[in-house]
Nucleic acid binder design. Structure first.
Lengths: 195, 195
DNA sequence: TTCAAATCTTGCCAAATGACAAGAGAATTT
DNA sequence: AAATTCTCTTGTCATTTGGCAAGATTTGAA
């Protein structure tokens, strides 16, 4: 085994939704997956069909606005499965791309396999739902911060909550995630230096 | 029966996740629920425990920012069940309030009843998941528009996608939903008059 | 190593939005 | 109907952010 699957098993155990036995049963269905730095894990127009749990690596999701500027919609690391929710569950073409910002290693299953597991292991359904709910709640929090906080406040919060992002993503990608231009983000950084 | 439950049954049928028989079975579990204009359907600090499908009426969800200003986080009408996702599924206190903007009528079940239905009617699980996915996707779209569109563009889009909002909600609530102050929204309206 | 491309910073100015306060208008209560 | 409260608009001015372009810095490829 290329990278210890016990890690994956513990990921499920730590979710508190399944016991050790079931966690192993679930982990056994997953297959190793590697995405090299720069490669697209999901391409706009495709149906998101891989539910990927990262062990190592860093990804970002992005799409384009009307002027064809890239907009980063999410960053992904080992804490949360990588897939595009609407495309994956509705079986519709994705509007987003998901790209590896570093070499990525992890385990994946297909939509079909996921459903098979949902069917055969009721506790795993709770895991699946908890993942959805967690992502939903995180997005609500982010939306609230877009409305109530200044760009500088959002920037500071991101440094505190997700410092790794700054190790792997260029400013421009981070800026669009924060909802500002890279120019503005650069200025915000400058202002903060003074303090 | 105070208001025709056949409506509710069709709501499930229209979801394309359950057939007519199951739809009736599901609808039978629901109870009538009324929320008078101005009343809170969910209060901050409570655990969201009612999964409400509206037949008539209009609600809004809101919370407070650090300066204690109300921020409208969502509007609810008959197209989407009313509940607070994270609080409901995680059984944690809600950070949001949900208030009736008009007299509201519909049907509800509790968390416990919902889980019972998920357990006994597999197709209903798909309904439940589809609801989550739909809400998630809508929020992603809204987040993208916060990043890529001007306040005026978001305002125009809201008029087109949800004109009823403007019938029931005061400008201040709509403004905070759009991520701007009521002053700015008033000016945007003024500018648009000229055109 | 060298060159080219990508990234980041900075200056200048414009546009968008906010803060605060006053006043007009509407809705609600008594 | 009058009084009160809430809602919406508007003026003035400050702050935040964007657009564009140039230059500095870093990164990656040849």
């Amino acid at each position: 085994m290329l990278f210890e699957k016990i890690y994956l098993q513990q990921f499920f155990e730590n979710s508190r939704q399944v016991n050790a036995i079931k966690a192993k049963e679930i982990a056994d269905v997953f297959e190793e997956k590697e995405v090299k730095k720069g490669e697209l894990f999901l391409k706009e127009g495709q149906v998101s069909n891989q539910y990927l749990i990262l062990k190592d690596g860093f990804m970002r999701a992005y799409s384009f606005d009307l002027d064809d500027n890239e907009v980063t919609t999410a960053f992904h690391s080992k804490t949360y499965p990588v897939f595009e929710v609407a495309s994956f569950f509705n079986r519709t073409p994705s509007k987003e791309n998901i790209q590896a910002l570093t070499d990525c290693y992890g385990w994946m299953i297909t939509y079909e396999q996921l459903n098979m597991l949902f069917h055969s292991i009721p506790e795993f359904r709770n895991f699946g739902r908890a993942i959805l709910v967690k992502g939903f709640a995180a997005l609500k929090t982010r939306m609230l911060s877009m409305i109530t906080e200044t760009a500088e406040e959002r920037y500071v919060a991101l440094i505190e909550s997700n410092p790794e992002i700054f190790l792997y993503a260029p400013l421009k990608q981070i800026a669009s995630y924060l909802g500002i231009t890279d120019t503005s983000l650069s200025r915000i950084r400058k202002e903060m230096m003074k303090k």
